[in-house]
Amino acid sequence: MRKYVLKRLAQVMVILFCILTILFVLFRLAPGDPVTRMVDPEMTPEESQHLIEQLGLDKPIWTQYLIYLKNCSTGQFGYSIHYGEPVAKVIWEKLPNTILLFTTAVLLSAMVGISWGKIAAWRKGKATDLVLTIAALVTHTLFLPWLALLLVWIFAYQLDWFPITGMVSDEVWLDPTAGFFTKAADVLYHMVLPLTTLFLIHFGSYLLVMRSSMLDTLKEDYIVLARAKGLKERDIRNKHAAPNAWLPVVTSVGLSLAFSINGGALTETVFSWPGIGRELVFAVSQNDYPLAQACFMLISTVVLMSNVVVDVLYAYLDPRIRY
């Protein structure tokens, strides 16, 4: 087990190195360069030269690459060209917002999807199954921005139940008397629509995976044995069938959780949610190399690491898997 984890971590390091290199090359190949954005045409040549030197853009590309590698390995991602602040600071400001929205959405849709999938499989062919399966298929195939806009139009614009955009109301957060719970409630209130959108889009895939996995499990002989032992149907479903059925679902939840830190550019844009997804798109369009590179680095690391975590977790859930 230990050996396996160490081996996997070594693999992660190699892959990260490859990703770093690809990122570096890709950003240099992309059209446009930061100098033209940063350098004001009214600056004197000396001023612009100074700026370019300050950004390290005058050095040969190999030197830039080596500096970049050294900085990445020591955790120094430099300064955002656009904000002029440390990249880490920019990311840490946005990341919690994304995690709050997207990780909650993944957990919620996974929990609901898995338990509904279990029920659908258990009542296969009955009305419950039909309604759940059709609902899952329909919502899962909806186009996210369309659904998001529809919800905003109905519930925020027409009915005026929820705020149209943003994550907080200024009047609440600027009010010195507002306590923690008032502020939290305000954020929750803003979260309702984006969370609903993400939930509707995502619960279906978990439901369908869990349902089909559960149907396979229910055909197994140990289910007949459990019934022969005189177990209650509920215990057969929850203690014997489900623990076997959710093995394939774990992978999909684990990876979704990992990807949830990159947020969703579409969702964050529609709801003006100040998260990483929007920041990433912005950084790329502004040729803000350090910021974009750091964002991609962060996402790659989390995805790679959660692959390892999912594999290790698998060994705990399924005793047949040993490394």
Binding site: E220, D221, Y222, L225, R227, N244
Partner: peptide, 21 residues
């Protein structure tokens, strides 16, 4: 009544034992 008064010996080659328990 099941298992209490009448029990069953399943064929082991079939997946009669739950693999995760």
């Amino acid at each position: 009544v099941r298992w209490n008064k009448v029990s069953m010996i399943f064929q082991a080659a079939m997946n009669a034992l739950n693999p995760v328990k």
